[in-house]
Each structure stands twice: as structure tokens, then as C-alpha cells.
């Protein structure tokens, strides 16, 4: 197996979490995918700088974070809606915490998130499913559920907040220090 094939395995294993980070940081999913490709390309070209004692995914995620900030600087005056440095750090820490969830693969780590869905109210769970699984906009969800647009948005937001709380709980159960430190501020 040559280095290119090994790198492909690393891409396959890590692109999910890096992409999740970019989707958190960048408004446009197409831009997020472009940055994802660029981040891995840069990782490839800088492989000899990669400290192999550290996990590969967060290293590429760090490259992606730099790209986001660069793009933000470049388009600062054109309202492209990239998050700022403080926000990037927060998202990076959160992404690290997801990385720290129990499980060898991303699917195993995200099993916690799927399980947490069971703890949502019916409206929260249905709103999240319609929005993310079926790709419906809030205005399309509202008539289906017989709710106003604002109520749909609030169910969505409260559902996501509940999922975040649930993930924090999982991290605490695992005794993940970084996660506790990160989330303590958000809970106060």
C-alpha cells in the first residue's frame, strides 16, 4: 500500500468530522465542501509536518480552521458569513469533544447523538428529522405540523440545545475533561 492509498484511508476516516466542523463554521455547504477538499490537499502537502503521535482528524480540522479564517479575512467586506476567530475556537473545542466521544469510528461516536434524539419531545424530534433528513425548510415544516413558522424554528433550536446537553452528559459519564471544561461555560 503506497502513501497515497494510506492517505485515502485517512481521508475516509476523518472527512466526516472535519466536514461537520466546516458546516458549523461556514454558511454555505458548497463552500464548506470546497474548504474540506482544500484542507486535505494542504494536509497532504504538509504531511511531513504532521506529528504522528497526535490524532490526524483534529490536525486537518486545524488546517480547515485556518482556511475559514483566511476566507473570512478575504471576504470580510462582502458578508459571506464566516464565523470569527473566537467562534472558530469554540467550534474547534466542541469538535474535539465529539472526537472524544466513545467509539473507534465516527459512526460509533455519533451513536450517542442518535440515542440522544430519543430524549427530545415529539415536536423537537419531528422538526429536526423533517429539516435535516428530509431537507425541508422551516416554512415547509410549519403547515405539516400545523404550527407557526416561529414555533417551528424554536422547536428546532430547543431540540438542538437538548441534543447538546445530552452530548455533554455523555462526555461527563466518560469523564472527558476537555468536554466538561468546554461546556461548563455554556451551561452557566
Amino acid at each position: 500500500m503506497d502513501s497515497r492509498e494510506l492517505f485515502e484511508i485517512l481521508v475516509r476516516e476523518n472527512q466526516g468530522l472535519v466536514r461537520a466542523f466546516l458546516l458549523s463554521a461556514v454558511r454555505d455547504a458548497a463552500v464548506a465542501d470546497d474548504l474540506l477538499q482544500e484542507a486535505f490537499l494542504i494536509a497532504w502537502k504538509n504531511l511531513d509536518r504532521y506529528d504522528r503521535s497526535l490524532p490526524f482528524g483534529p490536525w486537518v480540522r486545524g488546517i480547515a480552521a485556518k482556511l475559514v479564517l483566511t476566507e473570512r479575512r478575504r471576504y470580510a467586506r462582502s458578508k459571506v458569513y464566516f464565523v470569527d476567530e473566537e467562534a472558530i475556537r469554540h467550534l474547534e473545542r466542541g469538535n474535539d469533544d465529539v472526537h472524544a466521544l466513545a467509539g473507534d469510528t465516527l459512526d460509533e461516536k455519533l451513536a450517542a447523538l442518535r440515542t440522544c434524539m430519543d430524549g427530545l419531545t415529539d415536536y423537537q424530534r419531528t422538526t429536526i428529522r423533517l429539516h435535516y433528513e428530509d431537507g425541508l425548510q422551516c416554512k415547509d415544516i410549519a403547515p405539516r405540523l400545523g404550527l407557526g413558522l416561529e414555533s417551528v424554528k424554536k422547536h428546532l433550536q430547543r431540540g438542538r440545545a437538548a441534543l447538546m446537553r445530552c452530548i455533554r452528559g455523555r462526555l461527563r459519564e466518560q469523564g472527558v475533561g476537555a468536554g466538561e471544561a468546554h461546556f461548563r461555560g455554556a451551561e452557566s
Binding site: 466526516g16 468530522l17 466536514r19 461537520a20 466542523f21 466546516l22 458546516l23 458549523s24 463554521a25 455547504a29 464565523v83 470569527d84 473566537e86 467562534a87 469554540h90 467550534l91 466542541g94 469538535n95 465529539v98 455519533l110 447523538l113 429536526i128 435535516y132 433528513e133 431537507g135 433550536q157 438542538r160 440545545a161 441534543l163 447538546m164 461555560g185 455554556a186 452557566s188
Partner: peptide, 25 residues
């Protein structure tokens, strides 16, 4: 972002979960 730190972090947590849920699909 909002001025209050707690609000900023709550908002960023929303984005974090949004990214995960989008990626999951």
C-alpha cells in the same frame, strides 16, 4: 455574535449541532 458570552456560546452550540446533523445526513 451576541454580546453576552452565554448567548454567544449557546448560539455556537447550535451551529455545532447543526454541522453534526447536516453531516449525518
Amino acid at each position: 455574535l451576541p454580546a453576552e458570552r452565554a448567548d454567544r456560546e449557546a448560539l455556537l452550540d447550535q451551529r455545532l449541532v447543526h454541522g453534526l446533523l447536516t453531516m449525518l445526513q
